[in-house]
């Protein structure tokens, strides 16, 4: 009896949910005047255009050294932004975590900083920071840094709480000090997970750095924007290709590191 009722309720919920999704989709299409049919039929055409225009030619290959230089700049900026953000996030993570926090006020503050910086998209951060820092690599670095602190702090809080509560209790009971506990129990136990999150953030940041670079006029994003605006699509293709290769390479490297440490 009870189960039948429960199942009926579930089926109703599913139906209602489905109806809501359909209505929301319909309303969004109507409001944005996006014509689904045109959108879908345009896809083959767009692919055709990409194949005919986005070709890497001999000519564009000559620009490879300067592209790689800018690409390097972007990669190193992403890594620097991620690692410096990670250092700050470890501190905020320790403050924010239930098991390792030193005071409630600091814990709330750490969580607030994390959610505030996380919930504003990196692109928005870049635009905001552009106003005060102008178009230079500092702006791009800071935009990535802020977003990364938000994300990593939250990830670290979860890693710490999940992994080390019981050992922290045991070491507290032996009379160990706070820093002994953090250094000898919390960090060793959560480090592999933390490194995994840092690697993930490096991947993500290299992707976002391209976009941020378009706005801040630095790195690979700048080059992309430059050739795009001058309609040199062959070079645009080459730039895109190098970005894709880099992201894949970084992903493979970090997967390998993960396998080794976990």
């Amino acid at each position: 009896m009870k189960r039948e009722k429960e199942m009926k309720r579930k089926r109703w919920q599913t139906t209602i949910l489905l109806a809501v999704i359909i209505v929301v989709t319909y309303v969004s299409i109507a409001i944005t005047e996006f014509n689904v049919l045109t959108g879908i039929t345009a896809i083959p055409q767009a692919i055709g255009w990409m194949f005919s225009h986005l070709l890497i030619t001999q000519e564009s290959l000559a620009k490879l050294p300067s592209i790689l230089e800018k690409l390097n700049e972007t990669i190193f900026m992403s890594i620097a932004a991620t690692t410096t953000a990670a250092a700050v996030s470890i501190f905020l993570g320790l403050m924010g975590s239930k098991t390792t926090r030193v005071s409630n006020v600091l814990s709330v503050l750490a969580r607030f900083i994390a959610s505030f910086s996380r919930n504003i998209p990196v692109v928005a951060w870049a635009l905001i920071l552009l106003l005060s820092f102008g178009q230079n690599s500092m702006t791009g670095y800071l935009a990535l840094f802020v977003g990364t602190v938000g994300f990593l702090t939250r990830a670290f809080i979860e890693s710490i709480d999940e992994v080390s509560g019981s050992a922290v209790e045991a070491l507290t009971a032996t009379g160990a000090t706070y820093f002994q506990i953090v250094n000898k129990a919390v960090i060793p136990q959560s480090l592999p997970q933390m490194i995994s999150w840092i690697l993930f953030m490096i991947e993500t940041n290299i992707r976002s750095a391209t976009l941020v670079g378009i706005l801040t006029g630095t790195g690979i994003g700048y080059i992309f924007d430059l050739y795009y605006k001058t309609m040199d699509y062959n070079t645009v293709a080459l730039v895109t290709f190098t970005i894709v290769i880099t992201v894949i390479a970084i992903e493979m490297a970090s997967n390998y590191i993960r396998k080794v440490i976990l």
């Binding site: 045991a170 820093f179 592999p192």
Partner: peptide
């Protein structure tokens, strides 16, 4: 403890020596 409350990734001997932290300064422990 019921669930032993060790640091699982560390070695047995390291976990045993954790019992000495209370007698040490923070730096000695770290």
């Amino acid at each position: 403890f019921q669930h032993y409350n060790l640091v699982p990734r560390l070695s047995v001997i390291e976990n045993v020596l954790h019992g000495r932290f209370g007698y040490k300064t923070t730096i000695q422990g770290i």
